[in-house]
Every structure is written in C-alpha cells, then in structure tokens.
C-alpha cells in the first residue's frame, strides 16, 4: 500500500488526529528503510482503525509508542503521533509590510422620527485624559476604534445633548421610540438601515462595556449621548443614554 504521497499532502494541509496517527505510523514505517527502527512494530501498529481508536481515547498509551524519547513523566511530550495531534497549522505569517485595511467610514446619520436629517458624522478618537472625543454640537462622532457599521460588534456613534448652550444632534435621543429607523450613510454613499431595539440610561461610570464597546459578535449600532441629572456646577450629566439598534433586515 503506497500511502506516502497522498497522506503526506493531506498532512501538510492540516494535521488531524487520525491522519496524523496514520502518518506517524507511516513515517515510522518509511523511516525503517533508511533508519534503524524495528519495522515489525510499526507494521503491526498499521492496523489503522484499532490504532486510531486507541489513540483517540488514550493518547499516552499509543501502541506505536515504543520510541526512545519522552516518557509519560514529561507530560504531553510523547513522540510521534501524539505530538502531531497537538500541533495545528495556522495561516502563514505575511511576508512584507502590512497595509492598513480601512473601510468606508460613516459620514451621515438620519433618524427621521427625531428630526435628524443627514447629520454630519466625523471620525473621533480618545482625548488625552482618556475620555472619548466628541465633536461640536451639530455633528456626530463615530468612534474610529469601534467596528465600522456593517461589521461585527458595536459601532459607536456619540453626539451631544447640548453643548455650550447649543442643542446637540442627540438632544432628543432619550425620546426615540423602539422600532424607530436609524440610517447611516458611508463615504461611498451606501446607506445601512437599523431599528432601535433598546433605549437605556446608565450612570456614566457604569456603562455596560460588553455592549457599548464590543468589537466582535452581534452587529449593532450604539448611539450614545448624555442624560439624567445635570450638575450645573460641574456642567456635566450623571448618566449616558444608550440606544442600541440592529440591522433592519435581521429585525423582525
């Protein structure tokens, strides 16, 4: 049975328990011709299915394991098939310098029911004091380190309720109704539609980070502004209003 070529190529693409074991058996077998191992042991272990089953259930007692190397006392480092099955191939390390993979950024936000009509959206980051950057009252900030709309995770759009006496784009965000449609247009002109699923208020230091700042998982649009008690001395609100919207085509 000339297994060497096809099994070799399967192994190269992705080692797995069964194939790795079969290959290990094979390698022992093929090594015999050039090396000094006793061929009979390997040939007996070549009863593939039995060997494979045994290895699946109790890797440490692989019947093909009569090699001179690591014993059971060295943990997982048993030779041959057991090693192979604990190793997995990953995508290759890229050669050459990487490129930034920037997608089209959001540029406009519309929430018709709140009278927000194509409000300008700009990219924002983090202030030196660790707070998220928020643009002037008449603009919406897309947190540039959050996913793009359309990607997995929470894409964050924040705007003022009011700033320096001027009403912000999100002055009425707390009043948005469940099911209201939210539209985001990107710089390529593509508009994505979402519907409002939840409207919640949290103390600023108790934002649910797993929802607001999720970088993977369910695709969400997270709209954030301020709310709750206004402290006139600190000129600051106690709470954040957090509106979560999900893609319209997925919503019922």
């Amino acid at each position: 049975m000339s297994l060497s070529l096809p099994l070799g190529s399967v192994f190269r693409s992705r080692p797995t328990r069964l194939v790795a074991l079969a290959l290990a058996v094979l390698l022992v077998g093929s090594a015999c011709s050039s090396a000094t191992t006793d061929p009979s042991t390997a040939a007996e272990a070549g009863a593939d299915q039995d060997a494979a089953t045994t290895a699946e259930q109790a890797p440490a007692t692989d019947p093909a394991d009569d090699g001179p190397a690591a014993g059971p006392d060295s943990g997982q480092a048993t030779p041959g098939s057991d090693l192979s099955e604990l190793v997995s191939e990953l995508p290759p390390a890229p050669v050459g310098f990487p490129m930034a993979d920037d997608g089209p950024q959001p540029t406009r936000l519309t929430i018709e029911s709140l009278g927000i009509d194509r409000a300008p959206v700009i990219s924002v980051g983090v202030e030196t004091d660790g707070a998220m950057e928020v643009p002037p009252a008449d603009q919406v900030g897309w947190y540039r380190y959050s996913p793009l709309p359309g990607q997995a995770g929470s894409s964050i759009l924040a705007a003022h309720i009011a700033f320096d006496g001027e009403n912000g784009v999100f002055v009425r965000l707390a009043d948005v109704e469940l099911g209201a449609v939210v539209e985001v247009t990107d710089e390529d002109g593509l508009t994505r539609s979402y519907r409002v699923e939840t409207v919640d208020r949290y103390a600023k230091e108790q934002l649910p980070e797993d929802i607001v700042f999720a970088r993977s998982g369910e695709e969400r649009l997270v709209l954030v502004t301020c709310g709750g008690r206004f402290d006139p001395e600190l000129r600051s609100y106690d709470d954040n209003v957090v509106v979560v919207a999900t893609p319209l085509d997925q919503a019922s």
Binding site: G115, G168, R172, K204, V212, C226, R235
Partner: peptide, 20 residues
C-alpha cells in the same frame, strides 16, 4: 485594546428652541 474612560456628551441643558 481598552475602552475610553467615559463619554461626555453635554455641558449645558437643552434650549427651549429644541423641538422637545
């Protein structure tokens, strides 16, 4: 990554000119 410490989105109260 880590997240911003907070999101400050207002330093004044809405004006009566607002729709609400």
């Amino acid at each position: 990554h880590s997240n911003p410490d907070r999101i400050d989105t207002g330093n004044s109260v809405p004006q009566t000119g607002s729709n609400a």
